[in-house]
């Protein structure tokens, strides 16, 4: 299976969509970096998504400002991302879907679920951003992206991967990026800064107290060794969500969907089926 790329027009702006598979509809909201729409299309790092597509019809839009999706200039808060997702659902004529989000996508998915749970069958959140506490602060992504004297992106890889020097990590976020990779990576940073710059970054202080509105079965997947989203935050999510099951994966880092694609896809598929 391969993800097909197409461009939708939503409210006169381009929306970039990847689509694949057959079965019940699944809306996939991508992560901050090292995921669909922040990696070049030919990166070959789509095993997780393609495995999901064996059981579901996967729709993976690029959030506003990512890849080819327009709307960066009008973007202000995560709320705008939620409206975008509603527009995508309507454009695809999808009444209800399974919603799966990683990292940034997990944050947007939760925000959507607190408002429009009736559009969802089930919700899956994989290392979701969106909540930060004094005890467990979200990793300092905007510090990690500052250019170093010695060059390279090892600080970002350190946040995202279990081994920052692994072949996988170096392939996804190399030190010397192609112009296309650099462009996608910078757009991802711009968008995340636009909606999430305020420290401790990439969170909404109101979200925790709104989780009670997510009245659909929810699966939380948390990587025990996540350095971007501390795994303790999954417990905060679980405590607030009415129907949440938490699966904590030992020996895993933030980009669990890249490092353990089959295993992660199985956890998700089992829950959704």
């Amino acid at each position: 299976m391969t993800l097909r790329s197409e461009i939708l027009t939503i409210r006169n702006q381009k929306a970039h969509l990847l689509q694949d598979g057959a079965g019940p509809p699944l809306l996939y909201l991508h992560g901050l970096v090292a995921d669909l729409h922040s990696l070049p299309a030919d990166s070959g790092l789509t095993a997780f998504h393609e495995t999901l597509a064996q059981s579901f019809t996967v729709y993976a839009p690029a959030l506003p400002g990512y890849a080819e999706t327009e709307g960066y200039d009008e973007l202000e808060t995560v709320e705008d991302m939620v409206f975008f997702c509603l527009d995508v659902l309507d454009a695809l004529q999808l009444d209800t879907v399974h919603l799966v989000g990683t990292a940034l996508g997990g944050w947007v998915a939760t925000e959507l679920a607190t408002r429009h749970a009736h559009r969802l069958h089930k919700l899956v959140l994989i290392n979701p951003l969106g909540i930060s506490t004094s005890e467990a602060r979200i990793g300092n992504f905007f510090y990690a992206v500052t250019p170093k004297a010695e060059g390279g992106n090892h600080e970002v890889r350190e946040l995202i991967f279990s081994d920052r020097d692994s072949e996988l990590a170096m392939g996804a976020i190399p030190d010397d990026m192609s112009p296309e990779s650099q462009f996608l990576f910078y757009k991802a940073q711009m968008v995340s800064a636009r909606i999430g710059w305020t420290p401790p970054s990439l969170y909404n202080p109101r979200l925790k107290d709104r989780l009670y509105r997510v009245t659909v079965p929810t699966l939380l997947v948390s990587a025990a060794g996540d350095r971007l989203v501390p795994t303790a935050l999954a417990d905060v999510y679980q405590a607030g969500l009415p129907e949440a099951k938490l699966v904590r994966v030992a020996a895993a880092a933030h980009a669990i969907w890249l490092e353990q694609p089959q295993h992660t896809a199985e956890i998700v598929t089992r829950f959704l089926q």
Partner: peptide
Amino acid sequence: GKGRTWMPPGYTSLQSLQRLR
């Protein structure tokens, strides 16, 4: 100069970045 450069994302627009490149 040398050291860590505090250049935050979005401070430079995509167009300016392109021109610099």
